[in-house]
Lab assay of single mutants.
Amino acid sequence: KYSDMIVAAIQAEKNRAGSSRQSIQKYIKSHYKVGENADSQIKLSIKRLVTTGVLKQTKGVGASGSFRLA
């Protein structure tokens, strides 16, 4: 599940300011076997996790910027 992968990526990075979408994508692609549409799936999952309150956006708008666990 992409949401689990995103949470794992943010936990692994341990950046106080949060993790960027690009760094999350890079982590997921190197640690998991994902399909061609992974980028758009990650983007959608990040937006969903922010609206449900699992992630907090520290910089930027939408799916860009930095995110950390709430």
Rank of each mutant, 00 (worst) to 15 (best):
K26L: 12
A12S: 09
V34T: 05
A38W: 06
S19W: 04
V50S: 03
R21P: 11
N37H: 08
K56S: 08
I28G: 00
N37A: 06
E36T: 10
V50I: 08
K59F: 08
L69W: 03
I6R: 00
I10C: 06
V7E: 02
D4H: 12
Q57Y: 15
S3T: 13
A9C: 14
R16H: 12
R21A: 15
K33N: 12
N37P: 03
I46M: 05
R68V: 14
N37T: 06
M5L: 06
L49G: 00
K33W: 06
Q22V: 09
A8W: 06
S19A: 11
K29F: 08
A9R: 04
A8P: 00
K33D: 13
D39S: 07
S30G: 06
Q11P: 00
V50H: 02
M5F: 04
G60E: 05
S40L: 13
L49T: 00
N37L: 06
K26R: 11
A70I: 08
I46R: 00
T58C: 14
A17G: 13
V61A: 13
E13A: 09
I46G: 00
K14F: 07
I46E: 01
A70R: 06
S64W: 09
S19L: 13
K59L: 08
Q11A: 10
R68P: 03
K43H: 10
Q22M: 09
H31T: 05
V54T: 04
S64P: 09
Q25S: 12
I42K: 00
A38Y: 06
Y2W: 15
E36H: 13
Y32A: 01
S64M: 11
I24Q: 00
K14P: 09
Y2C: 15
G35Q: 05
Q41I: 11
K56Q: 11
A8N: 05
A12L: 03
T58H: 07
T52V: 09
S20H: 03
K56T: 13
A12P: 01
T58P: 04
R21V: 15
R21S: 11
I6A: 02
G65D: 14
I6Q: 00
M5E: 01
K33P: 10
D39K: 07
V34G: 01
Q11S: 08
A70Y: 09
I24N: 00
K33V: 11
F67G: 01
F67M: 03
L69M: 07
G62C: 08
S23E: 10
A12R: 04
L55R: 00
L69Q: 03
I24E: 00
S66H: 13
R16T: 10
S19C: 12
S20P: 03
S40C: 11
S66M: 14
I46K: 01
L44R: 15
